[in-house]
Write a protein that binds this DNA or RNA. Structure first.
Length: 884
DNA sequence: AACGGGAGCGCG
DNA sequence: AAAGCGCGCTCCCGTT
């Protein structure tokens, strides 16, 4: 077979209880003639040790014992050839427990494949217990396989410890289908109660079909339903089949509502435990109007204890409780399978959720700072975001329709222009190239998706790349990570051909239409979107948002102002001003930054002016602006720069607008420099950034000097960077000011690898980003508490900003309070946070992205009050005129 | 037919 | 040799 070692032997005691069987020798093993010594082998040994199994007591071998050609996965024939040998070894070693690593040993010894389904499920044959799990090489390739892999080894260890197949859990499943069972359940609802829902969709609202969908004949979706409710107590797991199609004795709607009301009364006195309870609480609120908020959520607990790994209930019971896998498929969860399997699954979910609460509770007790974040921020946010999602965000649907038409026209225009360039050719899908249209019969072009010849699809980067660089023969400017010629915006901006402009227009309009207008429609219910916020969505503590993502709405007012408030209410957006820079100032103790903030100087502006001063750029503009603002002549460049720093960006931008000087752009550019250098950007990237965003071609030397100058200006930053890097290397984690941990195992390697360096940069960024987010969340929690839903709704957060819907008569009061709370939330006291840098917030009133500050807003209100109607008003007296 | 990765691009 | 961080959505395309 072309390998060095033929029929490689296993290693370990020739008679032992435990055997581990891998796939086949790799190159390393083949060379040395010993199995399990490469990266995969090491992973297995470490994993065994971690699970409490000494690898030296195991007999370790492979299912195929010669290295297959080119290190390929062994074929069935090769497996068959070696099977006799492996079985021989099993007879000699006489193991009681055999761990099978991947498909190959599973096929060899159990006779079937499909490791994804089979893993974690022990099988007993001829008195031997086989446990299949992933092959370590797969775990090395795909980090998502790590959790199930360690879970399987934990189960393997449990089987060895207990001396046989794992005992069934002490479940006590009660199907609640009679008055006596209901009474039994209600009596038992006390103390710690877990609950969980199975639903037939993730979005709890029925969404009407759009006209487009109706026209295209899509099937009418199922009505959104809660399939079942499960409750877990110390004694039992109660299953309530609210809408399971196989339920032989269904409840009437009245009975359901009545039952939920009775449970609700009991739940008020319980300690409620959930796994991702934000989901279940939202559904209960939408479908039954009850507020079943958790006191303890196991998903969020695991998230705060280990932000890096998966938090799904699929693996946590296996990892922390040595459970066997018990997941069923999605269709079964929606009620499309057998009832007994469904009931068992539902029971285990609440059983294990309740058990995990105690495990994670203990783990949280070991780190009071982390526990405080969990209790004071994460858990309160569950309620806050259930309400935010329930309420939703209001959309100006009339204008949305207009914008849709406008964008479609834009796309059509761009396509007409683009097609002018490509009219002579068609795309040949077999050769991935363009051929002369005349050589192809018209009837052969794009008949269906499978046709060999297709019209050029401008949305395909593969086709576009071939068109630009093979057909038009334009020079390749950059390649993508995957090696294909790039057609990105950055490249197109540097492409010297008229087609580039049309492509950019096409892409921009296409993106806005598909991602935002079309993308929103399927979530639109009574003019509102109900995005889902993930409290566990990022490794830093920020939230993520999806379905749709409110946090990526373009700043383009065309799109952003579609998000607004309904009549009688007004949108207020409030954000923490330059918050990350302020936190960096605080954490680094940088004297220049702290002094700037103490004096109320805008740091992005400061950086901009210093950079201009250093490079000697924009001399005329600087002096002209200062002359105009001070009404004095004869400024030197240096003095003018200092004066401009003192004056600040607001005044400069205003007068710049009149004089045609882009001070606003200048500040924006500096903002990117600040963030870039602050978080470890290198001068090379700065050069690229300057080119792509501002069309400025600076030299390498200039780029290097700008970086040097930056750290001369903020000269305490490098020491802070080094502190963070060292902490990550030594401790394996860094913390934010609220106590959140960012675990960085890659930094511990300290081997200068790309991953290690990336981890060190994360050690700098994480505490900053994380604390900024926590301030924002603290303020949101407090403002929700201070103002009830009769006057204020939080509709979402965007990292350092909060979006509110405020009742019109409360705008002034709430606006002022928002700014106070955001600049110092009361939770600072609980966390004993005292900052030396001032925190400031800004807010704007009106549709998102087009709001104004309070003063401007007031000025707009006056005419409405001062000018009484000529005729007596028909409107009821006392009702104020609507704003906006 | 469903899934997953890559490319590209929207945001803070 | 490599050196901002953190996300989600749409599309295409290859894979199962």
């Amino acid at each position: 077979m072309g390998c060095k070692t033929v029929c490689m032997d296993g290693v370990g005691p020739r008679k032992t209880k435990v055997m581990v069987i891998g796939e086949a020798p790799g190159a390393t093993e083949d060379e040395a003639g010993v199995p399990f010594i490469g990266r995969s082998g090491k992973l297995v040994r470490d994993a065994l040790l971690n699970a409490g199994i000494d690898p030296d007591t195991c007999y370790i071998t492979n299912a195929v014992n010669c290295r297959p050609p080119e290190n390929k996965t062994p074929t069935s024939a090769q497996i068959r050839e070696c099977r006799r040998w492996v079985q021989e070894r099993i007879k000699q070693v006489k193991p009681k427990y055999v761990l099978l690593l991947g498909n190959v040993p599973m096929e060899s010894l159990l006779g079937f494949t499909g490791i994804k389904k089979a893993r974690g499920n022990p099988i007993e044959r001829d008195g031997i217990i086989y446990l299949p799990t992933y092959h370590p090489a797969y775990v090395l390739r795909d980090p998502r396989a790590e959790a199930p892999f360690t879970a399987d080894l934990k189960l393997f260890a449990r089987i060895i410890r207990e001396g046989g197949m794992p005992a069934e859990e002490d479940l006590n499943v009660v199907l609640v289908n009679s008055p006596s069972k209901i009474r039994q359940m209600l009596d038992d609802l006390k103390g710690t109660v877990s609950y969980d829902l199975e639903t037939n969709d993730l979005y709890p609202w029925d969404v009407p079909l759009t006209p487009k969908e109706i026209a295209s004949g899509v099937p009418i979706p199922n009505k959104k339903q809660i399939v079942s409710l499960q409750l877990g107590t110390r004694k039992a797991q109660y299953i309530i089949l609210l809408n399971h199609p196989e339920n032989p004795v269904p409840f009437t709607e009245d009975e359901k509502q009545d039952l939920i009301t009775r449970i609700d009364k009991r739940m008020r006195n319980c300690y409620i435990v959930t796994h991702n309870g934000k989901f279940d609480a939202l559904w209960m609120l939408v479908h039954f109007g009850v507020r079943w908020f958790p006191s303890f959520d196991t998903m969020l607990a695991h998230y705060i204890l280990d932000e890096n790994s998966l938090h799904t209930l699929k693996v946590l019971p296996q990892v922390f409780l040595g459970a066997m896998p018990y997941d069923i498929n999605v269709e079964e969860k929606k009620g499309g399978g057998s009832l007994p399997a469904f009931i068992k699954y539902g029971a285990k979910d609440v059983y294990y959720t309740r058990k995990l609460r105690f495990v994670f509770g203990k783990m949280l007790d070991e780190d009071t700072a982390v526990k405080r974040v969990f209790e004071e921020i994460l858990m309160p946010c569950v309620e806050l975001f259930v309400e935010a999602e329930y309420h939703g965000v209001y959309i100006d649907t009339e204008r949305m329709d207009e914008v849709e038409i406008y964008l479609q026209e834009k796309i059509d225009e761009a396509e007409v222009e683009l097609n002018r360039y490509s009219s002579k050719v068609v795309w040949d899908t077999s050769t991935k190239s363009f051929v002369d249209r005349k050589t192809v019969a018209i009837g052969d072009i794009g008949v269906n998706k499978r046709s060999q010849y297709q019209e050029l699809n401008w949305g395909s980067s593969q086709q576009l790349g071939a068109f630009l660089y093979n057909y038009l023969k334009l020079p390749i400017i950059e390649k993508t990570e995957g090696g294909a010629p790039s057609t990105s915006e950055s490249v197109l901006l540097r492409t010297d051909h008229k087609i580039a402009r049309a492509l950019l227009d096409y892409r921009a309009a296409q993106k806005q239409l598909t991602a935002f207008i079309d993308g929103w429609r399927r979530y639109l219910v009574d003019s509102r979107l109900h995005p889902s916020f993930k409290l566990h969505g990022t490794v830093t503590g920020r939230l993520s948002c999806e379905n749709p993502n409110l946090q990526q709405v373009p700043r383009d007012p065309k799109i952003r102002t579609l998000i607004t408030a309904p009549p009688g209410w007004t949108m207020i957006e409030a954000d923490l001003s330059q918050i990350e820079m302020r936190i960096a100032a605080e954490l680094s103790g940088d004297k220049a930054l702290l002094e700037a903030y103490r004096l109320g100087i805008d740091v992005h502006w400061l950086t901009a002016m210093r950079e201009i001063g250093r490079a000697g750029a924009m001399k005329d503009e600087v002096i002209a602006t200062v002359e105009a603002l001070t009404q004095k002549k004869g400024w030197s460049f240096g003095d003018a720069i200092d004066e401009l720093i003192r004056i600040g960006p607001k005044a400069a931008e205003a007068i710049g607008k009149e004089m045609g000087i882009p001070w606003k752009e200048t500040r924006k550019k500096a903002k990117a420099i600040n963030f870039g250098y602050l978080y470890g950007m290198w001068w090379k990237k700065f050069r690229i950034y300057a080119r792509d965003n501002y069309g400025v071609d600076i030299t390498d030397l200039d780029a290097q000097n700008s970086r040097i100058a930056y750290f001369e200006l903020y000269s305490d930053l490098p020491q802070w960077h080094n502190r963070q890097r060292r902490k990550a290397r030594v401790d394996g984690y860094v913390r934010s000011l609220t106590g959140r941990k960012r675990r960085l195992p890659d930094a511990v390697r300290n081997d200068g690898s790309y991953d290690a360096q990336a981890a060190e940069r994360q050690a700098i960024n994480s505490p900053v980003q994380s604390f900024a987010n926590d301030i924002n969340l603290m303020a949101a929690i407090q403002l929700r508490k201070e103002f009830g839903p009769d006057v204020l709704h939080i509709v979402g957060t965007v990292h350092d900003a909060i979006l509110f819907e405020v009742r019109n008569d409360m705008i002034e009061v709430i606006y002022k309070r928002i700014l106070e709370v955001m600049s110092r939330p009361e939770l600072f006291d609980v966390f004993r946070i005292r900052l030396s840098v001032p925190i400031e917030a800004e807010a704007s009133i009106g549709p998102w992205g087009a709001g104004v500050d309070l003063e401007t807003w007031r000025a707009k209100q006056r005419p409405a009050v001062r000018t009484p109607p000529m005729r007596p008003a028909k409107r009821p007296v006392g009702k104020r005129r609507l704003a906006m």
